[in-house]
């Protein structure tokens, strides 16, 4: 399986990523529909958060503009750092189609991650832009003055995409044992929404709980980290370092799980 020369691998993965990008660029209706929905939720969450700030002047250490940015950029990021689309691999395991994926000379997980990077790239220039622009027009958003902040934000988003894709791959791999992954997918969706900072900034939680989430789970790395880097709350270096650590953990875990999953794979029927 590893006969392909390693110098060819980056090129193959780049082609796979480009294919992921092109594939999603053909779903035009879905892109418009998704951007509309993210924008609607943006208005709702922004008004709710601002009503909290209006009483106290600040909430969880954010002022009005920072909180508005947190909400709107978060709505944009939701499609980029995708954590709600059920992984296709799970259905391919159930149907047995996964055998076609395994015949390819490239590692399964590398293919999945490369495809997702392509998807994220397309989402960045479409689904990220729409809510952020609408948010800017309708509310006063906080825009960092330091160009370095934007660079750090970009790195943080890339890490978040990779962590999310790896975690979703882990969810999909449970199909090798469970066959039906809807339950696991739901657990993931449930936790990733509430514990990532999407529904509300994690700083609104009691300190012990927020710390527990940061240290004990990858969820804050998906949303809260890039958003805090952007609005300049807390140390950007520390948050990005935390993301790198979590990426290492989930990738290592995914490698082990994938190896064991493929070892026990039996393709049924012909």
């Amino acid at each position: 399986m590893s006969d392909t020369s390693t110098s060819g691998l980056p090129r193959i993965l780049a082609v796979v990523a480009a294919a992921g990008f092109r594939r999603h660029s053909t779903y035009r209706q879905a892109t418009i529909a998704g951007a509309f929905t993210n924008t609607m939720f943006g208005f709702m969450r922004c008004y709710i958060m601002l009503s909290v700030v209006d009483v106290t002047g600040q909430a969880g250490g954010y002022d009005r503009a920072q909180l508005a940015t947190f909400v709107w950029v978060g709505q944009g990021l939701l499609a980029v750092v995708n954590f709600w689309t059920p992984p296709e691999l799970a259905e391919r395991v159930r149907s047995g189609d996964v055998v076609a994926d395994l015949l390819r000379p490239v590692d399964l997980m590398a293919m999945v991650l490369a495809t997702d990077l392509g998807r994220a790239g397309y989402a960045l220039i479409t689904r990220f832009v729409v809510p952020v622009v609408v948010g800017m027009l309708a509310f006063d958003l906080f825009l960092p003055a330091d160009p370095l902040t934007y660079a750090a934000f970009a790195v943080s988003v890339l890490l978040a995409v990779l962590i999310s894709a790896t975690c979703l791959h882990l969810v999909a791999l449970t199909a090798f044992w469970l066959m039906d992954v809807r339950g696991v997918t739901m657990v993931w969706a449930l936790l990733s929404g509430a514990a990532s900072g999407l529904y509300f900034p994690l700083t609104l939680l009691p300190d012990w709980l927020a710390t527990l989430l940061w240290v004990g789970t990858p969820f804050p790395s998906l949303m809260q980290a890039p958003l805090d880097v952007l609005v300049g709350r807390g140390s950007a270096a520390l948050m990005v370092a935390g993301q790198v650590a979590w990426l290492a953990v989930v990738v290592a875990l995914a490698r082990v799980v994938q190896r064991r999953a493929l070892n026990r794979l039996v393709i049924q029927g012909g």
């Binding site: 039906d180 809807r182 339950g183």
Partner: peptide, 22 residues
């Protein structure tokens, strides 16, 4: 798929709780 069903039932119930938690 019994295990998956039980997990789904429990977590779909918890999901409502979480909306309220927000």
């Amino acid at each position: 798929y019994r295990a998956s069903f039980v997990v789904e039932l429990v977590f779909s119930t918890l999901m409502t709780a979480l909306d309220v938690v927000t």
